[in-house]
């Protein structure tokens, strides 16, 4: 069980309201990702759910029980911290055993769960090492192991992969996704990396300045962003925004078109421009096109290798059915 609901939860540090009243439902077994720019209150929200911070007003219910009076340990949630927060003087085995020891789990049961977690996370060979003797990825796995053995109602992750290098991050991302499939436990995952959000989430919560901008499945957010902020935040490279006469021509204050929804041609098209930087990745080619008279740069993503270089003139054609239209308040029309 791991149903969490936030009702009018508000958090202020002194006079500063970091999270204005906010409602959110997290269903049992869901993988929910909080994304948003730095400082928007993702960690704060997670810590409120964990009980490490007290809500200023409002209520958090976990499995239908109001949690206001529940200390962190009694909420049945396990948290994986960005810095891993392993206990440096304890071996990996003792680290993983610590929550069970505190809960008074019997020694045999502890052994059984440690062995299970260690084999699931490839930690069996490292059980007698200290955290200081492990690599970043291994430490991350120990932190996850320590969370798993508690058999929590929900896992909370606060940017668990941000200290890892790119390759390791992709690997751990898959491992965490697999873990979720296997355990089918609710997971709340904070990140500011939208690729992590898109690939892992069942449900993405986009936050800005403590406010929820949109909640939805990854593709829903990608195809149907509710406003300019979400449109700009989800998707990489960013959506192009065009204002002025061209947007008016499409009956919008601002029109948005994703780089992958613009066709490139060397000979003909709707818009004309000059290529600035061309990024040839092999699988894709990104062009940053200037001098279109529409916006400073228009980013275009072409599939495969396209033989256009810096300084070449290009013609761009937006795919008509993929154009997003926003009104003057930035809301989707």
């Amino acid at each position: 069980m791991g149903h969490i609901s936030l009702n009018k939860v508000r958090k202020a540090f002194g006079d500063v309201e970091v999270i204005p009243p906010l409602d959110l439902q997290i269903n049992d077994g869901e993988f929910v990702v909080f994304v948003g720019p730095s400082g928007c209150g993702k960690s704060t929200l997670l810590r409120l759910i964990a009980g490490l911070e007290d809500v200023s007003s409002g209520e958090i219910e976990i499995d239908g029980r109001p949690s206001a009076e529940l200390p962190p340990a009694k909420r049945g949630l396990a948290m994986v911290f960005q810095s891993y927060a392993l206990y440096p003087h304890m071996s990996v085995r003792k680290n993983i055993a610590f929550p069970m020891k505190m809960a008074g789990v019997s020694a045999e049961e502890q052994e059984r769960r440690i062995a299970a977690a260690a084999s699931a996370l490839n930690l069996t060979d490292y059980l007698d090492r200290k955290p200081g003797q492990l690599s970043g990825g291994q430490r991350q796995r120990v932190a996850i192991g320590r969370a798993i053995v508690r058999e929590p109602a929900a896992f909370l992750f606060d940017e668990p992969l941000s200290n890892l290098d790119a390759a390791l991050r992709v690997g751990m991302r898959l491992e965490i996704s697999e873990l979720h499939k296997r355990l089918a436990t609710t997971m709340i995952y904070v990140t500011h990396d939208q690729v992590e959000a898109m690939t892992m989430a069942d449900k993405i919560v986009v936050l800005r300045a403590g406010r929820i901008e949109q909640v939805g499945a990854p593709l829903e957010l990608y195809e149907n962003p509710r406003n300019l902020f979400v449109a700009g935040f989800i998707g990489s490279p960013r959506m192009n925004f065009i204002e002025g006469p061209e947007a008016a021509h499409h009956n919008a204050h601002t029109m948005g078109i994703r780089p992958e929804h613009i066709d490139v041609s060397a000979t003909q098209g709707q818009w004309q421009g000059r290529i600035g930087v061309a990024e040839h990745l092999g699988s894709d080619t990104y062009f940053h096109v200037h001098d279109t008279g529409l916006a400073e740069t228009i980013t275009v993503r072409a599939s495969g290798e396209v033989a256009l270089r810096h300084g070449d003139t290009v013609f761009l054609t937006p795919q008509a059915d993929k154009i997003h239209r926003f009104n003057n308040e930035g809301l989707k029309q």
């Binding site: 490490l52 962190p72 340990a73 911290f81 810095s83 927060a85 505190m102 320590r146």
Partner: peptide, 24 residues
């Protein structure tokens, strides 16, 4: 974060002192 982790792991104030602070 270590203290908070211990708190979430169910360690009370005394256990936190004994298992986290003193070794530190």
């Amino acid at each position: 974060e270590q203290i908070e982790a211990a708190e979430m792991d169910g360690a009370g104030a005394l256990s936190r002192f004994r298992y986290i602070t003193i070794p530190h």
